[in-house]
Amino acid sequence: MGTECFTGEELEQIAYMLKAVAHPNRLRIICLLSRKEELNVSEICEETGCSQALISHHLTDMLAKGILKIRRDGRNAYYRLTDERVTNVMRCMMNCRSK
């Protein structure tokens, strides 16, 4: 399938999404959130084994790029995916890999 099935604007949106998640830790966070639906920073740190500073950096960037949304409950902030297109793209990429 060639790129003629996508408009220039659609290609820009696809590239933006891929760049926004193109890091193993971000992909790990996305996988966690696709399974658990909503997690706070401490829970993500515990699951990934990464420092709070590193996780906060990735969450802030993905939040700014519209990949995540946040829900505040008192002093706690809970993160979730904005939609499942990101995980769908990851699944498609894994299905297309050579075996």
Score class of each variant (00 low, 15 high):
75 R>V: 09
77 A>G: 02
1 M>W: 09
9 E>A: 10
85 R>T: 01
46 E>W: 11
5 C>S: 15
20 A>E: 06
91 R>W: 08
30 I>D: 00
21 V>T: 14
96 C>G: 15
27 L>Y: 00
7 T>R: 12
32 L>F: 04
62 M>Q: 07
49 G>K: 10
1 M>S: 15
10 E>C: 08
56 S>F: 05
60 T>R: 15
99 K>M: 14
36 K>D: 07
65 K>N: 03
54 L>S: 14
98 S>A: 12
55 I>W: 03
86 V>N: 04
15 A>D: 13
37 E>Y: 06
19 K>F: 12
66 G>T: 02
96 C>P: 01
24 P>H: 02
55 I>R: 02
16 Y>M: 12
50 C>E: 14
4 E>N: 14
86 V>L: 07
85 R>G: 00
2 G>P: 11
13 Q>G: 12
70 I>K: 15
13 Q>E: 14
90 M>R: 05
43 E>F: 01
81 L>M: 13
45 C>Y: 01
64 A>E: 15
48 T>D: 10
59 L>S: 04
21 V>N: 06
2 G>N: 15
43 E>W: 03
93 M>T: 07
7 T>G: 14
15 A>W: 11
75 R>D: 13
37 E>N: 03
27 L>F: 00
21 V>K: 03
12 E>A: 09
81 L>T: 08
14 I>M: 08
60 T>F: 09
9 E>H: 07
69 K>I: 03
53 A>R: 01
26 R>F: 05
83 D>I: 00
16 Y>Q: 10
64 A>V: 06
7 T>M: 04
24 P>K: 01
52 Q>N: 07
92 C>T: 04
97 R>S: 10
82 T>A: 10
85 R>E: 02
23 H>Y: 07
35 R>P: 00
23 H>R: 04
28 R>S: 15
85 R>W: 06
9 E>N: 12
55 I>H: 08
72 R>I: 10
51 S>M: 07
63 L>E: 07
22 A>K: 12
59 L>Y: 01
70 I>Q: 15
42 S>K: 15
88 N>A: 08
86 V>G: 05
50 C>I: 08
50 C>T: 11
40 N>Q: 01
28 R>C: 08
95 N>P: 02
7 T>Y: 03
84 E>D: 11
38 E>S: 10
62 M>I: 05
75 R>M: 05
29 I>N: 06
77 A>Y: 13
70 I>S: 11
19 K>H: 13
92 C>S: 12
30 I>V: 09
67 I>Y: 00
89 V>K: 03
76 N>C: 08
5 C>F: 13
54 L>Y: 14
96 C>R: 08
38 E>A: 06
78 Y>G: 00
37 E>P: 00
1 M>F: 09
13 Q>H: 10
94 M>N: 14
